[in-house]
Design a protein around this nucleic acid. Structure first.
Length: 116
DNA sequence: CTCATGACTAGCT
DNA sequence: TAGCTAGCCATGA
């Protein structure tokens, strides 16, 4: 595992931290999305690295998932269980290692009928 | 510079 | 939905 640059003042890292903090309770976001919001498009892996090195317990890292809505840890690992536990604690449904990602169609009818 | 390693993605089967 | 593959970014040996 590579170490995250200790310099806690790096803009990129801070931006990512801020982006993660910005995720509302009970909601989730992908690594790529977080990176993009931090002004770092295409740096999904950087976001992952930052989280892996993060130690701040107040950081809602558990709200960050992979693009397919799955937890980024290997199933059964401690990190995996911890993340799943925290998510459920916020009312997020976690089934078989994956989370219901906010599909563009929370309501199929509205989408089909062009209502919104 | 090249190679290896990730809490990653997107595309194809 | 599940597997595989190739591409990407950043870091360290």
């Amino acid at each position: 595992m590579k170490d995250v640059p200790a310099a806690a003042g790096l803009p990129a890292v801070e931006a990512i931290i801020a982006a993660v903090r910005a995720i509302p309770r009970g909601q989730v976001a992908g690594y790529g999305e977080v990176a993009r919001r931090a002004g770092l498009p295409g740096r999904a892996r950087l976001a992952a690295r930052v989280l892996s090195g993060n130690t701040d317990t107040s950081l809602p890292w558990h709200r960050v998932l992979r693009s397919d809505g799955r937890i980024a840890f290997p199933e059964g690992s401690q990190g995996f269980r911890e993340q799943a536990r925290r998510l459920r604690g916020e009312g997020v449904a976690v089934a078989n290692g994956r989370v219901r990602m906010p599909r563009t169609v929370p309501d199929l009818d509205a989408e089909v009928w062009g209502m919104r």
